[in-house]
Simulated scan of single mutants.
Amino acid sequence: MPRFTHADENGSFGRYGGAFLPPHLEAPIAEVATAYREAMADPAFMDEYRELLREYVGRPSPLYLARRFSERLGGAKVYLKREDLNHTGSHKINHCLGEGLLAKRMGKTRLIAETGAGQHGVALATAAALLGLECEIHMGGIDVEKQHMNVVRMEMLGAKVVAVETGGRCLKDAVDSAFATYAADYEDVFFGIGSVVGPHPYPSMVRDFQSVVGAEAREQIMAKEGRLPDVVMACVGGGSNAMGLFSGFLEDEQVRVIGVEPAGEGLSGDRHAATMTKGVDGTLHGMSTVVLQEEDGEPSPVHSIASGLDYPGVGPQHAWLRDVGRAEYVSVTDEETLEAFSLLCRTEGIIPALESSHALAHAMKIAPEMSPEQVIVVNLSGRGDKDVDYIAEVMGSR
């Protein structure tokens, strides 16, 4: 078995992962685990999934050399894995189609999920419309306001959008709300978790559906450069886009693997979501992982300019990769993120998502320290259409 890629039979990555569930949900989640294992071993299921990725999503996504961006920085060449060019505008469609197909295979009629920036919600609503399923998306009230365009898109696709006004009104609260609704009525429902988080099998399942990103990037960089990259990099909230890219390179220990978290308004205060930098071991949303939490054990309020990253936990495989030294985790501030957003817009004519701009911001720090022969691959996980009104408001206020 590959050293860094898979969980054990209990869904654990070292001391992280597993399934911590109320007793009445143990059987339904175990049913998902069984269906997932059987589907991944079924050539007919995988053929249908791959055909949708090719004919519907538009894969493979390009691996693009950002020449002017690289020249502006000096040093290493920066390649962008263009997940923003997928149908629906981000990497999220990769696992949402897989989850939708699995739900149909299990005889479920309704998809339910959380969303932060709205990209997972849009992708799951898209999969539901395509496959003839009902869809309900829970979204924090703050994010409903910030990401109004994605709310409209979800509703146009036939989804019911539930605005969550409890707690911090952000992604963590949306997960709480969606999970509570699922726990009360799970017979005909499939919970389409939006990242590599939650109880087993979700961290492995979402990673496996996202692994197409890393597999393509590996093949593409070998074709373009004749060798592996020096660094692969992606933003990390829950961590699905990062795990998708990383999975193609984890066994190549000469490749540096870097996850970039939101430092928000600075790590000295509490207005950030830098879980791997400031968190401690804990249990959240059915998994053992690293959590930003209060003294009483409750998850801390978090902040990021990017709605898709304001989560107080992280996928358990990320926590394990940090512990065994295979991956590095760093953080960048809101200000650095906005600077990276603007630079890519003006040098490449690409408007990136604020989530993806976190990874770009760290690339801006390390590329000048590297030689022109060296290569960085950044996962451009989503496009920034959803963010333009909010960014215009923020930049205008400054």
Results as ranks from 00 to 15, higher is better:
Met1Val: 09
Glu9Phe: 09
Arg15Glu: 12
Tyr16Phe: 15
Pro22Thr: 05
His24Ser: 09
Glu26Asn: 14
Ala27Ile: 09
Ala30Pro: 00
Val32Asn: 05
Thr34Pro: 11
Ala44Trp: 10
Glu48Asp: 11
Leu52Gln: 09
Glu55Leu: 14
Ser61Ala: 09
Leu63Tyr: 07
Gly75Lys: 14
Asp84Leu: 07
Lys92Leu: 05
Leu97Arg: 03
Gly98Trp: 06
Gly100Glu: 08
Met106Gln: 10
Lys108Asn: 01
Thr109Tyr: 04
Arg110Thr: 15
Glu114Phe: 04
Gly118Phe: 03
Ala125Asp: 12
Leu131Asp: 08
Gly132Met: 15
Cys135Phe: 11
Ile137Arg: 02
Arg153His: 01
Met154Phe: 11
Leu157Tyr: 04
Val162Pro: 11
Ala174Trp: 02
Tyr182Asp: 07
Ala183Pro: 00
Ile193Asn: 03
Ser195Glu: 02
Ser195Pro: 05
Val196Lys: 05
Pro201Gly: 13
Val206His: 01
Arg218Thr: 14
Arg218Tyr: 09
Arg218Cys: 12
Ile221Gln: 08
Leu228Val: 04
Leu228Lys: 00
Pro229Cys: 15
Val232Ala: 06
Val232Thr: 03
Met233Arg: 07
Met233Asp: 09
Ala234Cys: 14
Cys235Trp: 02
Cys235Ala: 10
Gly239Ile: 05
Met243Phe: 05
Gly244Arg: 00
Leu245Phe: 02
Gly248Met: 03
Phe249Pro: 02
Phe249Asp: 01
Leu250Ala: 10
Glu253Ala: 03
Arg256Trp: 05
Glu261Met: 15
Ala263Gly: 08
Gly266Ser: 05
Ser268Cys: 09
Lys278Pro: 14
Asp281Trp: 11
Ser288Asp: 12
Ser288Tyr: 14
Gln293Phe: 07
Pro299Met: 02
Val302Thr: 14
His303Pro: 02
Ile305Cys: 12
Ser307Pro: 07
Gln317Met: 10
His318Ala: 10
Leu321Gly: 12
Thr347Leu: 02
Gly349Leu: 01
Pro352Phe: 02
His358Lys: 02
Ala361Pro: 03
His362Asn: 06
Pro368Val: 11
Gln374Asp: 08
Val375Thr: 15
Asp387Val: 10
Asp387Lys: 06
Val388Phe: 15
Tyr390Leu: 11
Ile391Met: 13
Arg398Phe: 07
